[in-house]
Structure formats: structure tokens, C-alpha cells
Design a protein around this nucleic acid. Structure first.
Length: 536
RNA sequence: GGGUCAUUAGCUCAAUCGGUAGAGCAGUGGAUUCUUAAUCCAUUGGCUGAAGGUUCGAGUCCUUCAUGACCCA
């Protein structure tokens, strides 16, 4: 008997056996008290405690033969992971612990039910804590209760569930069958909780804004479209909450934030999922420079929380958050990257200096020289750029982005540091405030860790006339073929016309942050249910 | 969108040059009942992802498709 139907049939037979013994296969009569919950966590911790102290504490437990009979009774309940001799290994949310289930210590009817227990079933035992002959902790069962049946067989107990597709599709198995998976998602929850705590402590108000938008804006991205029947209205799932959050700043909330899902109708990769989680925050009377300080402090606090709670997830990092983050303008980053040997072949002796980058004709000439050596997308970005600023941004992405980790290092050069890239062209930043001394540039930064973008922030544009002009430029970009350009949001311009205080805002990719902090190579490993093609 | 690789029992994996599809775990029956991937004896289980093709013969070679992973775009 080995195919899946037969394995299930064997389990159904045991379910019937339980029914014949007066116990339902799927009962709901096991009621652990709050004290039981706490005691279970404590005993699981004791069972798994490492080092001399753990051993000493377990050594203090009585052996089965030393029991007097009036010891405290402990509940151990969870999923059966293994049967070893007279022991059941039981998995709980806190870890594993074992139950000693000896028929001669159990009421006859309960002892009989042991024949019907399968791996992955939910069970509960109650009894005194003992130490086994090998010094391990066990709950010596004085009562045994069937709590829930698993009809499907579990993955191999030693190898777990390895098939990556099955892991993502059947995360409900992955989470308990593979050690370490659940910890990533606990760490993720801690990251979000710590972000909230950090912002709440600074008097930011958490808000919820619409996910259904009738106008697309707030980011350069392709949206998902949908339709509202009653209003006969075309809608898009939001690509960013930005424009609603800034309306709230107009409304008088000086500090707001939202942590929520954005939807972008784009490709799937190890770094992209069509729905992902962003933190966006806005602060009146602040500039992008203060948000750099805030970002550093916030990331350090989150990192500290993850390190403290989940040291096992923090691997040997090639970056550090502990030392000061680098701050460099986009143009300086391009010049620095161009000087690196890695770009020598691409540039073939051509030097790039600030003057070249600032001169529209010189940059266009440089772009034309470089373009043939680049892949098609970058080539198009350089030669078909709708503006000097677009061209400069593409040049930055081509030359500098992947070299950031090599260029910006900590004090002793052993690790990369996060980099704030500042001063973006106005033409690629339709919602940012122009620099006071140079209106072609905006007060903006993007934060990169290991060359990958994790945050984007700027001093907010609060001049409604300028904003209207920028929206019109977006429409021009779209006419030139940019299908990620924003709509003209007339209501947002009206909101600004009512007067928005000077402000700065930040967007932070939560999934990517978790990837970095928990050493996870793919975004799918930090999303409980990443998007997959449906099974046939 | 392109390239590479993968898909064999419920799970984890084998299968030499194209020559009878195997193992461990789990399952079933039994023994044992202080085990640490429990042990011992016996035993069931396969449309080799799908569909075509080449061949005396295909898990293996070819084509197409499906799904996934990685890389590129």
C-alpha cells in the first residue's frame, strides 16, 4: 500500500477505529487553559534548552520510577512528528517536545487509541514531567487524547518537503514540515511590528487609504485594472498610496504612515511579486535629509529586533547597518562607478566627469557611444530617453547601481554600507520638490543595500501649479510610449491648491527589507503565498 | 519574452553506452516497548509531468506542450 489513495484509505480506516472507540476523528473537545499554553511553551523551551544550564535543569527532573504521584500535570499538545519506541515527538509552535506514552500508564480505552495515531495527527497528552534514561525531557502521559486527524501523509520526516514548487503551493505543509520556514514569517511579523512601534513612538498616525483607485499615480508602474459594477467605473489596484497620504497631510495630519499592499502588473522574479508590501510615511515640516536620518535609525531598530529575536536567521552578511550609511549624489556615484576597472571595457577610455553629465549634448553623445554595447532595454533607455534626466537615470542604473556595494564600504572595508543616492533629475521625479538652487534637480534619495533599492524618499512638491505641469509632462511621456507614466490627478492638484505644508515622504519595500535582514535570497521566501500559476 | 536546468512511488533520491525501474523513509502485518532519523523480520506500492516521434527495444535520444527553479531581458 503506497500510493496516495491507499495511504489516505489507511488513515480513514484509523479514523473509523477512533469513531468505534467513541472518539471523533475531528473532535473539538480539547480545551487547553491559558496556564496549559504557558506551561507547554515553558516545557518545550526546557526540552530544547542548550548548554550546561539546560542540561542541569533537565537533570533535576525526576525519573519515571521516582515519581511520587502528586507532581504537577503538564499538557503537551500538537502535531505528531515521529514515533520512537514508546515516545511521540510532538511539534508545537515553539518547537518539539516528546511524550512518553506507555500503555500501562494510561486508561485502557486511551491506550487502545494509540494504535490509531498516524504521523501528522494532532494529539494531546497530560502528565508529569520526567527525565528519560538519556537525560531528555518527556511528558509521561497519564492521559492521551486524539485531537485531530491528518488524512494525507506528511513529507519525509528527515528530509522534509524539498520540492520548491510544492513548498510554495502547500505552504501549510512547508511551515511545519521544514524547520526554519516559520521563523522567517515570525521575523517578518516582528519587522512590521517594529516599524509600527518606531513610528508610533514618534507620533506618526497609522492610516488606511483606498486600494481601489480611479486614477493611477504615486509611482511609475503598470497597474492591474478592474471594474466596479454599481458605479460602472473602471478602477486600478493601487500602485502606491502616496497621493492619498499627502491629501491627509493637506488635511492636517502632520505625520502619517501606511503599511500595506501595492499591486504592480509586471514580471515575477526573485525580487518581484505582483503584490508586495510597502511602508509609506509623510512628515510635515521635514526635508528628505531628515528622512535619511530617520531611515538610518529605523533600519537599525528593526535590525536590532530581528537580531535579538532570530539570531539563527541572521547569516554572515556582506553588508552592515551598524555603521553610518553613505550619502552620495547620483552624479557623483556615476563618476565614481565610471572610474572602476569593471566599467573600463564598457567605456573604453572615455572619462566621465560632472561636466559631461550636466551637459545635455555631451551626455547624449556619450549615451550614443555606450548604447550599442548594452542590452536592448538599456539601449532604449539611453538613446530613446524622453529627457536629459531620463538618460542620466538610465546611465546611473547601467554604470553605478551594481557597483554600489563595491564603492561604499564600512570603516575597515569588510562590508558594504547602505547608500543614499541623492539629487534626482526633476523629469523622473514628478512628485518631488525642486532644489531651491537648481530647479532641474529635486530633493530626493533612493536607499540601496547591496545595490538593490529598498527605499525612495523626497521632499514633497507642494506647489500646485508646478504639480499640474509635472502631470502634464507625464502625459507627454506616455504619448512618447512610456506606459508607466502617471495620470493627471486633478483632485490631487486641487488638494495642493488648498495648501499642503512643506513635507517629506518615504516609501520602503518591506519584503525586500525582510529578505536582507533574514538572509533570504528570493522574495518568495518572505511571502507566505507567492503568486504562482494555478495548478492544471 | 529568451536561454539553461529540472520533473521517476505519498516524501527524499538512485537507475553505467538506449537493454528486466531500485533504495531509504512513510504505509501494511508481526516482534520489541526509555526511543533520539528507534530497532528487527516480512511486505505492498510506478502510465518515469503530458502528447507525439526515432528504435527490435526509450526513464535515458528527438519534437511539442505543461509546471517550476535559476540566469538574461
Amino acid at each position: 500500500m503506497a500510493n496516495e489513495d491507499e495511504l489516505m484509505a489507511a488513515r480513514r480506516t484509523k479514523a473509523e477505529a477512533l469513531a468505534n472507540a467513541g472518539t471523533r476523528a475531528f473532535p473539538n473537545d480539547f480545551r487547553p487553559s491559558e496556564a496549559d499554553r504557558a506551561a507547554r511553551e515553558a516545557l518545550v523551551a526546557l526540552a530544547g534548552a542548550e548548554g550546561p544550564e539546560g542540561e542541569a535543569k533537565r537533570a533535576a527532573l525526576p525519573e519515571e520510577s521516582e515519581l511520587s504521584g502528586d507532581e504537577a500535570q503538564h499538557a503537551l499538545y500538537g502535531r505528531v512528528m515521529a514515533k520512537r519506541g514508546p515516545f511521540l515527538v510532538i511539534r508545537t509552535p515553539h518547537g518539539n517536545a516528546q511524550a512518553l506514552v506507555r500503555k500501562d500508564q494510561l486508561p485502557e480505552d486511551q491506550a487502545a487509541m494509540l494504535k490509531a495515531v498516524d504521523l501528522a495527527d494532532h494529539v494531546a497528552v497530560r502528565g508529569p514531567l520526567i527525565k528519560t534514561r538519556t537525560g531528555a525531557l518527556a511528558v509521561s502521559a497519564r492521559s492521551y487524547q486524539h485531537v485531530g486527524k491528518a488524512l494525507l501523509p506528511p513529507p519525509a520526516k528527515w528530509h522534509g518537503l524539498k520540492d520548491v514548487e510544492k513548498r510554495y503551493r502547500e505552504r501549510y505543509v512547508d511551515l511545519w514540515a521544514n524547520p526554519g520556514v516559520a521563523a522567517v514569517f515570525r521575523a517578518r511579523a516582528l519587522v512590521v511590528k517594529t516599524l509600527r512601534r518606531f513610528l508610533d513612538a514618534r507620533d506618526y498616525l497609522e492610516v488606511e487609504t483606498p486600494l481601489l483607485h480611479s486614477v493611477r499615480g504615486g509611482a511609475a508602474a503598470k497597474p492591474f485594472t478592474t471594474h466596479h459594477n454599481a458605479l460602472d467605473l473602471s478602477l486600478v489596484l493601487r500602485i502606491a498610496p502616496e497621493l492619498y497620504l499627502k491629501r491627509l497631510v493637506v488635511g492636517g495630519f502632520d505625520r502619517v504612515y501606511e503599511i500595506g499592499r501595492n499591486f504592480r502588473n509586471e514580471g515575477i522574479s526573485t525580487k518581484h511579486n505582483p503584490e508586495f508590501t510597502m511602508l509609506e510615511l509623510y512628515q510635515a515640516y521635514a526635508t528628505f535629509e531628515e528622512l535619511m536620518d530617520l531611515s538610518e535609525a529605523m533600519l537599525r531598530e528593526v535590525d536590532a529586533a530581528v537580531r535579538a529575536a532570530h539570531p539563527e536567521l541572521v547569516g554572515e552578511r556582506s553588508f552592515t547597518l551598524a555603521e553610518p550609511f553613505a550619502r552620495v549624489t547620483m552624479r557623483d556615484a556615476i563618476v565614481a562607478a565610471a572610474a572602476l576597472a569593471e566599467n573600463g571595457r564598457l567605456l573604453e577610455g572615455t572619462t566621465i566627469d560632472r561636466a559631461t553629465l550636466d551637459d545635455e549634448a555631451a551626455l547624449a553623445e556619450l549615451a550614443a557611444t555606450l548604447a550599442p554595447k548594452l542590452p536592448p532595454a538599456d539601449r532604449k533607455g539611453l538613446t530613446g530617453a524622453p529627457s536629459h534626466g531620463h538618460r542620466l537615470l538610465t546611465l546611473y542604473e547601467v554604470l553605478a547601481e551594481e557597483n554600489l556595494a563595491a564603492l561604499y564600504r564600512n570603516a575597515d572595508g569588510t562590508k558594504s554600507v547602505p547608500v543614499f543616492i541623492t539629487d534626482y533629475p526633476a523629469s523622473v521625479s514628478p512628485l518631488s520638490r525642486r532644489k531651491d538652487d537648481d530647479p532641474e534637480w529635486v530633493d530626493r534619495f533612493e536607499l540601496f543595500i547591496e545595490g538593490r533599492e529598498v527605499a525612495n524618499a523626497f521632499s514633497e512638491l507642494n506647489d500646485p501649479d508646478d504639480q499640474a505641469e509635472r502631470f502634464r509632462a507625464q502625459l507627454d511621456d506616455r504619448a512618447k510610449g512610456d506606459d508607466e507614466a502617471m495620470d493627471f490627478d486633478a483632485d490631487y492638484v486641487r488638494a495642493l491648491s488648498h495648501g499642503m505644508p512643506p513635507a517629506a515622504g518615504l516609501g520602503l519595500g518591506v519584503d525586500r527589507l525582510v529578505m536582507f535582514l533574514c538572509d533570504q535570497p528570493s522574495i518568495r521566501d518572505v511571502l507566505l503565498f507567492p503568486l504562482l500559476r494555478p495548478e492544471a
